[in-house]
């Protein structure tokens, strides 16, 4: 996976790209331009070899939200040019226009962030934040939260097993499974609370608060591309601002 040039970019470069899209979308007028961003993002995802996961998440996470927002705007955005009417519901031209603008921006920005997280491992991103001054505690919180979710899932499975052995039916209809799920919550929460104290001791035992500068096995390197791209992004944004507001 690491062979890909796009994936190999420094996390900050990818992050700057995401911010770049964000800025471009907000500066540029109209929805056509913003909608045009999306195919570009798909193209980048394809080049990076993550198109399938990318589209999958976009569809799951964004599409319903976008449709909902569009419909809301279509009906309730104030305007004069009514195109269609049924009872209190009126579709206005301004609504459609604003709806398209809003959804085009959300689509572009949202999918740019999704693409970022598809192309960047969180631990790399956190590491790059640490390199520019995120305190170790902050980094720890982010990384441990990431680990905790699969760990909690494992734990939930074990507790389910324990309950099966105590006669709780966990196989069968949704109702049966839902009923079995509730008793797993208490021990899950309890053991994670009991665990935090010991976790803190574990960290202390590993010299977490040692008064020295930490080192890291995990190193990120910057290529020429990583140095050049942010400048390009900045120039384009400045250009756009000048074009938009001063010409």
């Amino acid at each position: 996976m690491k062979q890909n040039i796009l994936l190999q970019l420094h996390p900050m470069t990818k992050f700057f790209f995401t911010l770049f899209i964000f800025a471009v979308v907000l500066i540029s007028p109209g929805y056509i331009f913003s909608f045009a961003i999306f195919p570009i993002l798909i193209l980048i995802a394809m080049l990076a070899g993550v198109a399938k996961e990318f589209l999958n998440i976009v569809i799951k996470a964004l599409v319903t939200v976008l449709i909902f927002i569009f419909i809301m705007q279509m009906f309730f955005y104030p305007g004069e040019n009514v195109l269609w009417e049924w009872g209190i519901f009126e579709i206005k031209q301004e609504g459609i226009k604003y709806g398209l603008l809003l959804t085009s921006r959300i689509l572009a920005i949202g999918s740019a962030f999704i693409l970022f997280f598809r192309m960047t491992e969180v631990r790399d991103f956190v590491k790059s934040l640490e390199d520019i001054g995120l305190p170790p505690m902050g980094a720890y919180v982010v990384l441990s939260t990431l680990q905790i979710i699969p760990e909690m899932r494992r734990q939930a499975n074990t507790i389910m097993e324990a309950q099966k052995t105590r006669g709780v039916e966990t196989e069968g209809s949704i109702f049966v499974r839902a009923k079995a799920f509730i008793p797993t919550l208490t021990p899950l929460i309890l053991s994670s609370i009991a665990g935090t104290e010991e976790r803190a001791i574990t960290l202390e035992s590993r010299a977490f608060s040692a008064p020295v500068k930490k080192t890291s096995l995990h190193q990120l390197s910057k290529s020429n591309m990583d140095r050049a791209l942010p400048i390009v992004f900045a120039l384009v944004v400045i250009g756009l601002i000048v074009w938009r507001f001063f010409l």
């Binding site: 734990q155 074990t158 507790i159 097993e161 324990a162 309950q163 099966k164 052995t165 105590r166 006669g167 709780v168 039916e169 966990t170 196989e171 069968g172 008793p183 797993t184 208490t186 021990p187 309890l190 053991s191």
Partner: peptide, 23 residues
């Protein structure tokens, strides 16, 4: 199902924390 078998076979887990779910 395991729940049915548990009427005949009781099983104490190795790690008690995997098993306890009451206050």
């Amino acid at each position: 199902t395991t729940a049915q078998v548990s009427r005949k076979v009781g099983y104490v887990f190795q790690n008690p924390d995997d098993q306890i779910f009451h206050n």
